[in-house]
Design a protein around this nucleic acid. Structure first.
Lengths: 352, 352
DNA sequence: TTGAAAGCGCTAACAT
DNA sequence: ATGTTAGCGCTTTCAA
């Protein structure tokens, strides 16, 4: 025996009113005499009426749902961002529909198509294709087919597509790190980890080189070109390689290392210890992201923090504002801050 | 100027066929002559036709969407489970609609209501109210209102509600740990961390006590009652308290400690080092969950692993089977395995 | 304040 | 193989 959901027609019939009146009560969209209202509300409770969101979405132009494309929420960076987007969305009466893409282009396209079929109001895209320094052509083609009124917001970029951007201020982050390292007397600084074809990593390297120049620090190429990955394992390997390069070229080791993220820093720490050096006395280390790893390592990590709550709010607000009062600003920046911990706290002699 | 989505009517008109025929090629639900099919497919491409999932969901009985209630995906345990549910669901043609509840009962109710409004086919509930040893009455009341045909699956339990359960085999997990510790000659073993009002933790303590009994190990009460939390911080405090209790009661320290999860173990390790003891030589430590923390700690942690892929599959399969071929088994177990690492590798003398 | 009626976009009998 | 038609459950003019 099939279970049938109660509809506004059922309620209307028993209350002796029209379905329209029930709808009005449901949405508080117009005045309804209080006796009818009460009767209707009582019946809704009695029959445990549960409005069909699909039917509503079919008529309403605004679904109050934002689609979110994220590479993989098992990565704490995306998990944090997702959760804070959800919190921000909920506070504004919206829901988030999340799709994991595992950084695979085919799954990203598929997920994007699904979100369109769901008629979400807007889309936030984190990681994956949004990270590519060279935007994939086929993805752009798909993006161009989006309804013009559906705002698309990303933490990366899409060449040739009209979309909104919310990005971490890479220049400000490097400034924070460099000022801190300079204050402690470091002159030989290396940046390690990350892939050159990822927008945010590229931005860090670019800003780093500019900054080294401005401070007049030692700009050995060995310090400036240490691309790698984003994993602990990768961090260890990249740091090992840096040791090797310094030795081979007879260049002194850096006094400080900036890791592209905390995992890379964790790997680098292993490598440094295996080379029988101390942190921060022999080499200071700082990194980006300030995930909980930075609290766990020995010594604890000095790291760039993002204020994910604000980050999530900006992403969601960009979507909603674009919807309500376009045109919103095309690009917004998230301000980073520096959390100083043990891994960088060692004064260098001026003579060094 | 408003953007209108193209519908099957638009396609039908231009192709000179009826909407039904367009629907047929859309769903491959019936034979359509190949010339019409081709014409229709071509027009769909030309106009970038994107079927409205809401309209489809309104008529179809099966939405192919499973709702997932999870406490917080920033917790790697839930993130892992969620992602693996999504992978399993996708492989079976389903999607997951995720809602975070932050372990708050009000949000859980709200999320549950939303999922019902979305007319999801079934619901998986992780953590939160499902973890309560004493199921919350008001939540049960809400659960009872679910359509009888909507399967409800949980990793915990709900007293007085007809639902499916997929749980880790607590007895098997304890067996694995105890056999391992026994093999290395440990006799004095303590269990630490976790809250007594959480189903899975309670199960671990119960099984632990039974097992201690069976092995004839030293069952000082001090070893058996060390409730705490699930955080690193909490692990440190609980372990500190255990040291204190042993000293006050003149009871020897345990040779091995089982932590309720890896975070608790991480905290306990800090505490042990602060008491100037060695791991595993003075105290061995093992734990549950095998999240990446267990790879990072020094020494690396021996930990119970769950095979999240299989776990996710079981959860999803339970929903789908209940839908397709009820009644499915009401309760399924997930088999844990043991990953042995440095934290427990030290033979005790028989004399100890 | 309330009701009648026309959609929203699609599916699924039922005819042909 | 294809078209006609009646919904699915709700919102929203337009009248009254």
């Amino acid at each position: 025996m099939e279970h049938k959901n109660v509809t506004i027609y059922d309620i209307a019939r028993e209350a002796g009113v029209s379905p329209a009146t029930v709808s009005r009560v449901l949405n508080s969209s117009a005045n309804v005499s209080s006796d009818k209202r009460q009767k209707i509300e009582q019946l809704m409770r009695k029959y445990n009426f549960n409005p069909n969101a699909l039917a509503r979405g079919l008529t309403e132009t605004r679904r109050k749902v934002i689609g979110l494309l994220a590479a993989d929420v098992r990565n704490t960076f995306y998990a944090d961002l997702y959760v804070n987007c959800e919190i921000a969305a909920a506070a504004r009466g919206y829901s988030i529909m999340l799709m994991n893409t595992f950084g695979r282009l085919d799954l990203e396209k598929q997920a994007l198509t699904k979100l369109m079929e769901q008629r979400v109001d807007g889309i936030i895209h984190l990681g994956g294709a949004a990270d590519d320094v060279e935007t994939d052509k086929s993805f752009v083609k798909l993006l161009k087919k989006l309804p013009p009124k559906m705002p698309y917001v990303t933490t990366g970029k899409f060449d040739g597509v009209d979309c909104y951007q919310v990005q971490i201020d890479a220049a400000e982050a490097i400034d924070l790190l460099m000022a801190h390292l300079a204050e402690y007397g470091n002159h030989r600084i290396a940046l390690i980890g990350g892939r050159y074809n990822v927008v945010s990593s590229k931005a860090k390297y670019d800003q780093f080189i500019k900054s080294m120049d401005r401070y007049g620090f030692v700009d050995e190429e060995v310090y400036l070109e240490n691309w790698g990955t984003y994993s602990i394992q990768g961090g260890e390997e990249t740091m090992d390689a840096l040791f090797e390069k310094c030795e081979q070229n007879g260049i002194p080791l850096p006094e400080a290392v900036i890791a592209i993220n905390d995992s890379t820093a964790a790997g680098a720490i292993r490598s440094i210890y295996q080379h029988h050096l101390r942190i921060p006395q022999d080499i200071a280390i700082v990194s980006y992201d300030n995930i909980f790893l930075s609290e766990i390592m020995e010594p604890r990590l000095t790291s760039i923090d993002y204020d994910f709550a604000a980050f999530g709010e900006k992403l969601v607000d960009t979507v909603i504002e674009a919807l309500d009062q376009d045109p919103a600003e095309k690009k917004r920046l998230v301000h980073p801050s520096l959390v100083v911990r043990g891994s960088s706290l060692c004064k260098r002699d001026a003579a060094s």
